[in-house]
Design a protein around this nucleic acid. Structure first.
Lengths: 188, 188
DNA sequence: GTCTATACCAAGATAGAC
DNA sequence: GTCTATCTTGGTATAGAC
């Protein structure tokens, strides 16, 4: 039970920062400090570990976005808090990198888990958009679902661009630009 | 000379749609229809092929965005044309996927080529933003660089989300939301 | 549940002939 | 420039003992 947790926690970090297909079971074992026998006892195949990791990383990310929004007075501030998710972009998004991993997409179970994580995140952002419109901090003229989709895409894209350029500033510029657009549309 | 071109063209498609680290030299040879001897004659190592592919895919993408913008009367329409780059998102961005590939990021040459491609794309979008402000189709109050960064991120993020959910509609929603934000800020 | 030993195949080349 | 044969390493397990 304990080793199983150690394996999952190591895999979550390694698959997140280094990718699923480009991280071997051996690297996970080494990082977790468990032997081969233990590893394959808990996870007979790599995809089984991957499924657990995608699910947990998705839940962790959702929880951390919720936590960063909690207690903020207006919907727009909660949206700004979500945009700040890309404040440390060089390590990559906890789930975004899986969307470009052939090993993930080839496995129906993993694909499914990944899609669920993104759908749930989109719903959370859409709720915040609606709240922002209700409390007057965002223009009621905006369509909530596409607006939420755009904000989610900005954050995911900010990770991509920051990693591609190697510069965190690339992500910061993107989220700052998105925030300015939200503000400009609200003061109309 | 001819086989070299065949190899590059196959690799460009395969690395684009299936990823760099998850595509083997053998798959490239098979797709290009060239033998092992020919392959390794032209590209002694996989990273050398990768560098050429990242450069060419970056240039191709830049050229296709420029082409899609050409002839459009207003800056905002040219920005809309750029947003339409994600109209076929399930295959992935021609360069965006490289940002999450450990094999690309580990090679300084490849990293460099990737960063250059993104920087050039950001500059192209920023020009279009400035033109849109000059011709009155976009609010002059927006800061051009962050606005361009946000739009680039929306497109990259649209690819990520569409692939994660397996639904093109996820990308369409994101770009539609971004376009609506541009319009809302301009009519202020 | 965990260990060590073993197995098998694919990735990424290298060698030398043509 | 291209071919076939060969080689090494690592990825991904399986087997059987403890």
């Amino acid at each position: 039970m304990d080793n199983r947790r150690l394996i999952i926690d190591s895999a979550k970090r390694l698959f997140w920062h280094r990718g699923y297909s480009t991280t071997s079971p051996k690297q996970v074992m080494a990082d977790a400090g468990v032997g081969q026998g233990s590893f394959y006892h808990h996870f007979p195949t790599k995809p089984e570990l991957g499924a657990e990791v995608v699910r947990e990383n998705g839940q962790d990310l959702l929880a951390s976005v919720r936590a960063s929004m909690a207690g903020l007075p207006t919907g727009r501030e909660r949206l700004a808090a979500f945009l700040a998710s890309a404040a440390d972009a060089l390590g990559g998004c906890q789930i975004g990198g899986f969307a470009y991993d052939a090993g993930i997409l080839a496995e129906p179970t993993l694909r499914e888990a990944l899609g669920t994580a993104f759908t749930e995140m989109a719903e959370l952002i859409e709720s915040a958009v609606r709240e922002a419109q209700a409390d007057g901090s965002l223009s009621p003229a905006l369509d909530p679902a596409p607006t939420a989709a755009a904000l989610l895409a900005v954050v995911e894209g900010a990770f991509v661009v920051a990693r591609a350029t190697g510069r965190q500033a690339s992500a910061d510029a993107a989220t700052a630009g998105a925030l300015a657009l939200l503000e400009a549309s609200s003061t109309s």
